[in-house]
């Protein structure tokens, strides 16, 4: 068995443990915060709106970083979805459009 398969370095494990603690800690902090707040109508609207605004804030810069192909993928997927397509078809269409531009036109 090669040496680099099962070697355990304490400092590497400490680094991994910190990364894991921060990640689950953020989720738990969010969970307990909303529980202690006893959300009223305004906070409920805030939390209801979050899924959409998180994904929008995550996706739009991602699309711009990928350039024209990224924006085309976004537009393609949204267009297919809005015309009654399902999520898988819309995702595949966005990908196909972006890949066609990337390899067909080199953009």
């Amino acid at each position: 068995m090669p040496a680099d398969w099962f070697a355990l370095n304490p400092m590497t494990l400490a680094g991994i443990a910190i990364m894991a603690a921060v990640t689950i800690g953020l989720k738990l902090a969010g969970f307990y915060t909303q529980r202690l707040m006893h959300p009223g109508p305004r906070v409920t609207r805030f939390l209801n709106a979050l899924p959409g605004t998180v994904i929008l804030s995550l996706t739009a810069p991602m699309a711009l970083s990928s350039g024209i192909t990224g924006v085309a993928a976004l537009a393609g997927a949204v267009a297919v979805m809005m015309r009654g397509g399902n999520a898988v078809l819309a995702t595949a269409s966005g990908l196909a459009l972006g890949l066609a531009l990337r390899h067909g036109f080199g953009v």
């Binding site: 899924p51 996706t59 991602m62 699309a63 990224g70 993928a73 997927a77 999520a87 995702t91 966005g94």
Partner: peptide
């Protein structure tokens, strides 16, 4: 096109929302 796949996936979800 891994980046494009992720973008398309989230964009389709956005459209449903």
């Amino acid at each position: 096109g891994v980046d494009l796949l992720v973008i398309s996936f989230f964009s389709a979800l956005l459209a449903t929302m």
